[in-house]
Simulated assay, not measured.
Amino acid sequence: MQSFKLGFLVNPIAGIGGSVALKGSDGDGIAEQALALGATAKSNYRAQQALEVLLPYQERIQVLTVSADMGETTAKSLGFDTQVIYQATEPTSAIDTENAVQALIDEGIDILLFAGGDGTARNVCSQVGDSFPVLGIPAGCKIHSGVYAVTPKAAGRVIEKMVTNELVTLTDADVMDIDESLFRDGVVKAKRYGEMSVPSELQYVQAVKSGGKESDELVLQDIAADVINHMEEQLYIIGSGSTTAFLMEELGLANTLLGVDVIQEQDLIATDITEPQLWQMLEQYDDQQGEQPAKLVITLIGGQGHIFGRGNQQLSPRIIQRIGKDNIIVIATKTKLAQLNQRPLIADTGDQVLDQALSGLIKITTGYNDQVLYPVASPN
């Protein structure tokens, strides 16, 4: 049987700045700064989740990849027939990504599966344009591009269809990215950089993320009024997103649109907090006020239905577990829920046990004294 040639590439530092509030990994010295603040690289773990779906088909797949942490280590650890096509420099760079993409395509791969964020997609696009099939494994802080699967496992499912010779339609998807220097200041400025050809399995591949704020101000006022009316004296952690930003605006508090803030008794006590800082704060709070558990207020990130795993990496599995599912407040407009076309919300924390625990029906505040039940699913 002829082998399926899977091109496999990992940006090992993709998303490394997310948990420490740096909003990404683009820019000189950002990765080093993130590591110094206690961040850990997770893109290879997310790439591994995608490849694990393909383990039943190992005999059919040859993985052509890049040296060390740019793909080789993960593919070999899972036992795939692995061939290194390109030797990356150390530390790796965008130039390595671009050179590796070209080398892999020259080897006659069937599709390029890559793990990264929007910056990585831009690097890949600069080499392939819309002339070669690709699929992204989401591993960055910001995933605006339509070339990524909804979750790492979803990426594996799409490749599985190709390996088993199911009909997979290709479509052109936009490559989008934002200016991280502005992003770190709370300004979202997205730009289209091109398009690439991706498998269009709609349940597995995301649409281009919406970039605008909610426009229905009256509905948002009702949602904010409901949350504020039920606020007590305990700690409230406010996640990222335009809907939570409106809540903060109604409270008259400064907000980190793309970060995590903390309030208590409706006063702002921490802004753009990192995961280690948040963990320490929760430890101190629980020691002092254990009878009143902290609350977490979150919303859907973009148009994909993610409540965890996109744009809020500060909310790590240990943070979410400490807070507890019963203390999570989800807010969203019914319009935004309707745009999901009955697809479930997605909890993609990186911890499979936690994702499963978060799955099922969850209450969502959609107005004043108005809640709906909506399903949450763990990644496919």
Rank of each mutant, 00 (worst) to 15 (best):
L268V: 05
P293S: 14
D326A: 15
F308T: 05
P317G: 11
G303E: 08
D261G: 03
I273M: 00
D326K: 15
G305H: 09
R322F: 09
Q289D: 12
G290M: 11
A332W: 05
E283K: 12
I323A: 08
L282W: 02
Q284F: 07
R318M: 07
D267K: 12
V262H: 05
Q292N: 13
T299K: 10
R318H: 14
L300P: 02
D272A: 12
Q304S: 15
Q266F: 03
Q284W: 06
G259V: 09
Q284H: 14
P293V: 03
I331W: 04
H306G: 08
L282Q: 03
A270G: 03
I319S: 06
E275M: 10
E265T: 06
W279C: 11
P317Q: 07
G302L: 06
D261Y: 05
Q314K: 08
D286H: 11
G259Q: 07
Q277E: 15
E265V: 00
A332G: 08
T274G: 02
I320G: 09
P317C: 10
N312W: 04
K295S: 01
E291K: 13
E283C: 10
A332P: 04
L300H: 00
Q264N: 07
D272N: 15
V330D: 01
L282M: 11
G305W: 05
E283Y: 09
N312E: 12
I307F: 13
T271P: 01
K325V: 03
G309R: 11
Q288E: 15
V330K: 05
P293T: 08
G311L: 08
L278T: 11
Q264F: 00
L278G: 07
